[in-house]
Protein backbone atom coordinates (compact mmCIF):
# COMPACT_ATOMS: atom_id res chain seq x y z
CA UNK A 1 0.00 0.00 0.00
CA UNK A 2 1.22 3.51 -0.66
CA UNK A 3 0.74 6.48 -2.90
CA UNK A 4 -0.09 5.59 -6.47
CA UNK A 5 -0.36 7.81 -9.49
CA UNK A 6 -3.95 8.60 -10.45
CA UNK A 7 -2.90 9.83 -13.86
CA UNK A 8 -4.49 13.24 -13.16
CA UNK A 9 -4.70 15.85 -15.84
CA UNK A 10 -2.70 19.03 -15.11
CA UNK A 11 -4.19 20.61 -12.05
CA UNK A 12 -6.82 23.29 -12.32
CA UNK A 13 -7.09 23.41 -8.53
CA UNK A 14 -5.33 26.56 -7.40
CA UNK A 15 -2.15 25.93 -5.46
CA UNK A 16 -1.81 28.96 -3.27
CA UNK A 17 0.50 30.02 -0.52
CA UNK A 18 -2.12 29.26 2.09
CA UNK A 19 -2.17 25.62 1.04
CA UNK A 20 1.62 25.43 1.35
CA UNK A 21 1.46 26.94 4.83
CA UNK A 22 -1.29 24.59 5.99
CA UNK A 23 0.34 21.40 4.69
CA UNK A 24 3.81 22.32 5.99
CA UNK A 25 2.42 23.20 9.43
CA UNK A 26 0.58 19.89 9.50
CA UNK A 27 3.72 17.93 8.56
CA UNK A 28 6.44 19.59 10.62
CA UNK A 29 4.57 21.97 12.88
CA UNK A 30 6.25 25.12 11.57
CA UNK A 31 6.17 27.41 8.57
CA UNK A 32 8.68 26.99 5.77
CA UNK A 33 10.47 29.90 4.14
CA UNK A 34 8.63 31.67 1.28
CA UNK A 35 10.99 30.18 -1.35
CA UNK A 36 10.25 26.68 -0.10
CA UNK A 37 6.52 27.35 -0.27
CA UNK A 38 7.00 28.61 -3.79
CA UNK A 39 8.96 25.45 -4.64
CA UNK A 40 6.07 23.35 -3.36
CA UNK A 41 3.61 25.21 -5.56
CA UNK A 42 5.88 24.79 -8.55
CA UNK A 43 6.25 21.04 -7.86
CA UNK A 44 2.48 20.50 -7.61
CA UNK A 45 2.02 22.32 -10.91
CA UNK A 46 4.81 20.40 -12.68
CA UNK A 47 3.67 17.04 -11.36
CA UNK A 48 0.10 17.89 -12.41
CA UNK A 49 -1.52 16.76 -9.18
CA UNK A 50 -5.27 17.32 -9.26
CA UNK A 51 -7.73 18.00 -6.47
CA UNK A 52 -10.16 15.97 -4.38
CA UNK A 53 -12.90 16.43 -1.83
CA UNK A 54 -10.55 15.34 0.94
CA UNK A 55 -8.02 17.96 -0.11
CA UNK A 56 -10.63 20.71 -0.33
CA UNK A 57 -12.09 19.84 3.04
CA UNK A 58 -8.67 19.56 4.66
CA UNK A 59 -7.65 22.99 3.41
CA UNK A 60 -10.95 24.52 4.53
CA UNK A 61 -10.78 22.93 7.98
CA UNK A 62 -7.09 22.22 8.70
CA UNK A 63 -8.03 20.64 12.03
CA UNK A 64 -9.44 17.70 10.03
CA UNK A 65 -6.25 17.12 8.03
CA UNK A 66 -4.95 14.38 10.31
CA UNK A 67 -8.14 12.32 10.01
CA UNK A 68 -8.42 12.85 6.27
CA UNK A 69 -4.75 11.98 5.73
CA UNK A 70 -4.95 8.90 7.97
CA UNK A 71 -8.17 7.75 6.30
CA UNK A 72 -6.81 8.25 2.80
CA UNK A 73 -3.64 6.38 3.76
CA UNK A 74 -5.73 3.31 4.50
CA UNK A 75 -8.43 3.40 1.85
CA UNK A 76 -7.35 5.81 -0.88
CA UNK A 77 -3.56 6.10 -0.97
CA UNK A 78 -3.55 7.79 -4.38
CA UNK A 79 -5.75 10.68 -3.25
CA UNK A 80 -4.37 14.08 -4.30
CA UNK A 81 -4.32 15.06 -0.61
CA UNK A 82 -1.74 12.33 0.05
CA UNK A 83 0.17 13.21 -3.11
CA UNK A 84 0.39 16.87 -2.16
CA UNK A 85 1.48 15.98 1.37
CA UNK A 86 4.19 13.77 -0.10
CA UNK A 87 5.39 16.59 -2.34
CA UNK A 88 5.51 18.95 0.62
CA UNK A 89 7.45 16.36 2.63
CA UNK A 90 9.93 15.97 -0.24
CA UNK A 91 10.37 19.72 -0.61
CA UNK A 92 10.92 20.18 3.11
CA UNK A 93 13.28 17.22 3.41
CA UNK A 94 15.55 18.66 0.71
CA UNK A 95 16.19 21.90 2.63
CA UNK A 96 18.80 22.69 5.23
CA UNK A 97 16.06 24.23 7.41
CA UNK A 98 14.09 21.01 7.82
CA UNK A 99 16.63 18.24 7.25
CA UNK A 100 16.86 17.41 10.95
CA UNK A 101 13.15 16.62 10.94
CA UNK A 102 13.76 13.84 8.43
CA UNK A 103 17.36 12.62 8.81
CA UNK A 104 17.39 9.19 10.48
CA UNK A 105 19.43 8.84 13.65
CA UNK A 106 20.01 6.04 16.16
CA UNK A 107 18.08 6.23 19.41
CA UNK A 108 18.24 4.30 22.67
CA UNK A 109 15.78 1.39 22.72
CA UNK A 110 13.40 2.91 25.35
CA UNK A 111 13.12 6.13 23.32
CA UNK A 112 12.58 4.16 20.13
CA UNK A 113 9.85 2.05 21.70
CA UNK A 114 8.15 5.14 23.13
CA UNK A 115 8.27 6.96 19.77
CA UNK A 116 6.90 3.93 17.91
CA UNK A 117 4.13 3.32 20.42
CA UNK A 118 3.03 6.94 20.66
CA UNK A 119 3.04 7.69 16.95
CA UNK A 120 1.85 4.22 16.01
CA UNK A 121 -1.24 4.50 18.21
CA UNK A 122 -1.90 8.05 16.98
CA UNK A 123 -1.65 6.93 13.37
CA UNK A 124 -3.93 3.96 14.00
CA UNK A 125 -6.61 6.18 15.56
CA UNK A 126 -6.41 8.66 12.68
CA UNK A 127 -6.68 5.85 10.16
CA UNK A 128 -9.56 4.02 11.81
CA UNK A 129 -11.58 7.18 12.44
CA UNK A 130 -10.69 8.80 9.14
CA UNK A 131 -11.26 5.86 6.80
CA UNK A 132 -15.07 5.71 6.97
CA UNK A 133 -15.17 9.47 6.69
CA UNK A 134 -13.09 9.35 3.47
CA UNK A 135 -15.16 6.49 2.06
CA UNK A 136 -18.40 8.36 2.70
CA UNK A 137 -17.03 11.50 1.13
CA UNK A 138 -16.26 9.89 -2.22
CA UNK A 139 -13.39 10.58 -4.58
CA UNK A 140 -14.48 13.53 -6.72
CA UNK A 141 -13.59 17.17 -6.33
Amino acid sequence: MGIRSNGSAPTKVPVDDREARILASYLVNRLPRPEHRLRYREAVRRLAIGGSRALRLGLRFPVLLGLLDGGCGLVRPDDPLRQRLLVMAAVLEATTDHVEEFLPAPRPIPVLVAVCLYHGVKAAIKGVVGAPFVLLMGRGE
Binding site: L27, G70, G73, L85, A123
Partner: peptide, 9 residues
Protein backbone atom coordinates in the same frame (compact mmCIF):
# COMPACT_ATOMS: atom_id res chain seq x y z
CA UNK B 1 3.45 3.73 4.44
CA UNK B 2 -0.36 3.54 4.87
CA UNK B 3 -0.21 5.77 7.95
CA UNK B 4 -0.91 9.47 8.29
CA UNK B 5 2.07 11.45 6.97
CA UNK B 6 2.98 13.23 10.21
CA UNK B 7 3.22 9.95 12.10
CA UNK B 8 4.91 8.26 9.15
CA UNK B 9 7.60 10.92 9.23
Amino acid sequence: SPLAMTESR
